[in-house]
Design a protein around this nucleic acid. Structure first.
Lengths: 320, 320
DNA sequence: ACTAACTACGTAACCAGTTACGTAAACAGT
DNA sequence: ACTGTTTACGTAACTGGTTACGTAGTTAGT
């Protein structure tokens, strides 16, 4: 019946557009039938000026989230029809000021009860929703920006293109695990090893796997180019550590890919949170973590168990 | 900063559009940078034909949710560029069939990993959301249709225009409550009164208010034209009953308005559910109830306490 | 079998947005 | 004071959609 539904996530854009269109056209009909003889496309600009006072073109375009030529053309039309007045800006000779005519003020008064009714109705729909749409949109927009959508996708693709595969532990990768991590420690921390480091690098199968943790590797062709460890901790949480990418394979998004896989894993296990410790010098790693929604907090136990760590980050997985 | 946020619900339409636009343009960039040299606007039609086989113009326009001239123009362009082939329909000389060229099939194969990556990324955002956007949209669309948005708004406005106000109980409305309900009983049920009816109509202040219930009235000018009672029941639920609208004031949406007010009230009281009993002959009332999301169920106690009722409806308020 | 209604599609005119580009004013750094 | 850069705005060309309307072909009802 409705092909759009089948595409699911991929069609999010179209779904949004369609919903927006039906909403708009319903509203247009309502204006019409309540005798408000005004092009619905005028309302955004009218209300903007009504609430915020006279506006310049660029200013209005930013507020409304459209391009300035769009506002410019719209304003022209509205001026011709007597809703707006354009006056020069008192100080800036480039700029102009759009203000409302009496006619416009009257229309706005007339429209106010309609807006109230619209708002009430939408509010009522939202009250009935298990997941209020507006909140969902806000959240999505925030996450979308935070994630840097485009780069994430491109990096994922890049990994695929380069035949980089994320794989699980296998005994023959033991040496690679140590190699990658020693390399990392040498580069950033002069190769200083704690007692725990020794344990985890020499017998990862005991330190991680045997205690309910996981080890992930990235394989390019036949070479292991990156590693990451998940350690199961109390209160149903996991620690992420030992994330190391071969210097020659950096910048390809392997780290992101590895982290994504790990996070999907812990999500699948219904863990409550994931946390990690890192050093503030490692800005690229920190960026990556923030990208995935990790937030910097005080260390819950006051101080870290790693001498090299000075930051604690965590990601809450359980939904409120 | 961003004016759109302030408008809240009223700007839902614009918010949706904007989000959709940014999504689309991000995707366009991704296609671009992965070397898929294809206008992103071609994809809906390509994938449609790819998945569903050759399509006629009208058929495709329905599937994609756009007008047929839009598909017609798009198809022309795509044929000129060698992506589509238009052949006459074997049986219907009016119709034509759009099918994919080899070139198009190749492009689709090329694009598949990109779609997978996109989908994964969006999926990941949604996994991080407390309220998945797609679910919220689906739910909203369903409720929106169910509610008959336009009429609801117009009726609300109508009530305001006619100076109809919803008010609470006051002792002087006691007679009106009885009058409206007796009238209703006479019209539909030959004025048969049970013991409970007598009580509730003669001493509503004891029967409803004193036991934690509510009474609402609609006043037009100085006349009471409708009434509705909420009775507090066990398990934090309310019964709606005694909904009666003056015959001369019917069709103005007063019933809807009254019910809306009552539902907002019980929502505010954090009740778990609202239920009511009615008779299957009262189709208009039942429509109204369905409109607000009431669903017909078996009577939980097997049979009704009203001799005149043969339907039980309820609305669950608590969110899952 | 014929006619009225409907259907598939094309074309035209329009609309609301966009990007690209140009101009004049304002600003900031030497 | 001058010069390069930024800013406010307008204009032009384009895009992806719309509605309105016309035409040929199909269908259904008498």
């Amino acid at each position: 019946m409705d092909y759009m539904h089948q595409l699911g996530n991929l069609s999010l854009g179209s779904r949004l557009k369609r919903l927006s269109d039906t909403l708009m056209s319903e509203v247009a009909h309502i204006y019409n039938e309540t005798g408000i003889s005004l092009n619905p496309s005028y309302f955004p600009l009218l209300t903007l000026i009504h609430h915020q006072g006279p506006q310049g073109i660029t200013q209005a375009s930013e507020m409304l989230g459209v391009s300035h030529p769009a506002v410019s053309k719209l304003a022209d039309k509205m001026i011709r029809e007597g809703y707006l007045i354009k006056s020069p800006h008192p100080k800036d000779k480039r700029a102009s000021q759009l203000s409302l005519s009496d006619k416009a003020e009257q229309i706005i008064e007339q429209a106010k009860p309609v807006w109230a009714a619209l708002q009430q109705q939408i509010h009522f729909i939202e009250a009935r929703q298990k997941m209020p749409l507006l909140d969902a949109i806000n959240e999505f927009e925030k996450l979308f920006q935070q994630q840097n959508f485009k780069n994430s996708v491109l990096q994922t693709l890049n990994c695929k293109a380069q035949n980089i595969e994320i794989i699980n532990w296998a005994p023959q990768y033991k040496d690679d695990f140590k190699r990658l991590n020693m390399n990392w420690l040498n580069t950033y921390f002069n190769g200083e090893l704690t007692e725990t480091d020794q344990q985890s690098l020499n017998t990862p199968e005991d330190f991680y796997l045997a205690r309910g943790g996981y080890l992930f590797f990235a394989r390019q062709a036949d070479k292991i180019v990156a590693a990451l460890a998940l350690r199961l901790c109390e209160n149903n949480s996991f620690e992420i550590s030992k994330m190391a990418v071969d210097p020659q394979a950096q910048g390809l998004g392997i780290g992101r890919h590895l982290l994504l896989t790990a996070l999907n894993k812990v999500r699948g296990l219904h863990a409550d949170k994931v946390w990690l410790e890192t050093n503030s010098r490692l800005t690229r790693a920190i960026n990556l973590y923030s990208n995935f929604g990790f937030t910097t907090l005080e260390h819950p136990e006051g101080k870290s168990s790693y001498p090299r760590a000075d930051m604690y980050m965590e990601l809450q997985l359980t939904k409120a």
